[in-house]
Amino acid sequence: MRELVFATNNTHKTEEVKQLLAGQYQVLNLKDIGCDTDIPETGNTFAENARLKTSFVETHYQMDCFADDSGLEVEALNNAPGIYSARYAGQRGDRENLELVLKNMEGITNRKARFKTVVSLVQQNQHYFFEGVINGTLREKASGAEGFGYDPIFVPDGYDITFAEMSMAQKNEISHRAQAMRKLISFLKSATL
């Protein structure tokens, strides 16, 4: 069975993908291949950051690999926090990042926002990209206890609850990351036929 590295240290994400690709690929994460490097995300786009991770694994480990980068883009904030979503308040901290977005949105009536994910895949020296986007609006106050990051203030279009008020299964049906991962998995399955 062919090996495929998911450039993440998140074991929960790794297990989800392992189940989806069972029988076709042996999915490994960074820990599995002995990589403890914090791969720098110095790109200017989600695609560039995702590709930096896959290129790192390809260069240093000579293995097929995929990685994702994602974030929140707020229309009234010129698509900020964008690629800086995880460190918008200066360093990593979900609560601080969320509070800064709410502060910067005070008094603004345009609440349109979207979550975006780009997955980069390098396979047999070829690079591929898969994108997922979900549009929505931002609440003025956080609500819900599920999810992470900006989930407590993001209401996807067509819903009246935030991502943080949804079950994980419900969010995973519609989320930006789920969309991009479904495209990746479809591509990988068709490539092994």
Rank of each mutant, 00 (worst) to 15 (best):
T137S: 15
S167C: 06
N29H: 04
S190G: 11
I161C: 09
T42G: 06
G158T: 07
T109D: 11
G144A: 05
V17W: 00
F46S: 03
E96P: 04
F6C: 06
N104T: 14
G107E: 05
I153S: 02
E15S: 10
R95C: 11
L98K: 03
E173N: 12
G90T: 08
T14G: 02
R111F: 09
A50K: 02
A178V: 01
N125G: 09
K141E: 11
S186M: 13
I108F: 06
F148Q: 02
I108D: 08
T117W: 02
G149C: 03
A47L: 12
K18P: 05
G158D: 06
A67W: 01
A22V: 15
L4P: 03
M105A: 09
Q179E: 05
A76L: 11
D69L: 06
R114H: 14
K103P: 11
Y150S: 04
T8L: 08
N79W: 15
E15Q: 13
S186H: 08
N78C: 08
R2N: 15
A169K: 14
H60G: 13
E15Y: 10
R139S: 14
Y84H: 13
V17A: 02
V27K: 05
T137P: 05
L72H: 05
V133F: 04
Y159C: 08
S190K: 14
Q26Y: 13
A22D: 13
A145H: 13
S167A: 11
T162Q: 00
G43Y: 10
F115G: 02
E173L: 13
M1V: 14
T59V: 12
V155F: 08
V155L: 06
D69Y: 08
N10I: 03
V27F: 09
T42Q: 12
R114P: 03
L77T: 09
N104C: 08
G149P: 03
N29Y: 10
E75K: 15
T37Q: 15
I39M: 04
G149K: 01
H176M: 08
A47R: 01
T8A: 03
E73G: 08
S175C: 09
T14Q: 01
K189F: 13
E16H: 09
N78D: 15
K112C: 09
F66L: 03
N172A: 14
Y61G: 06
Y25C: 10
A180I: 03
S167W: 05
N49V: 07
N97G: 07
Y84V: 08
V74P: 00
T14A: 02
F115H: 00
L184Y: 04
E99N: 13
E106D: 11
R111I: 07
E140P: 07
R87P: 12
I108S: 09
D94Y: 03
A191P: 05
A180C: 09
S70G: 12
A191D: 03
L28P: 02
I134P: 04
H127R: 13
F56I: 07
F56E: 00
Y150E: 00
K31R: 12
C35S: 10
K18G: 02
R87N: 04
I161R: 10
D69G: 04
V118W: 07
K53Q: 02
D151F: 09
N9E: 13
A164D: 01
Y61S: 07
L184R: 00
S55V: 15
K189A: 14
Y25Q: 07
R92L: 09
E15M: 10
A47V: 10
T45D: 06
A76C: 08
R182S: 06
P152V: 06
T37I: 14
N49I: 03
N49P: 03
Q123W: 10
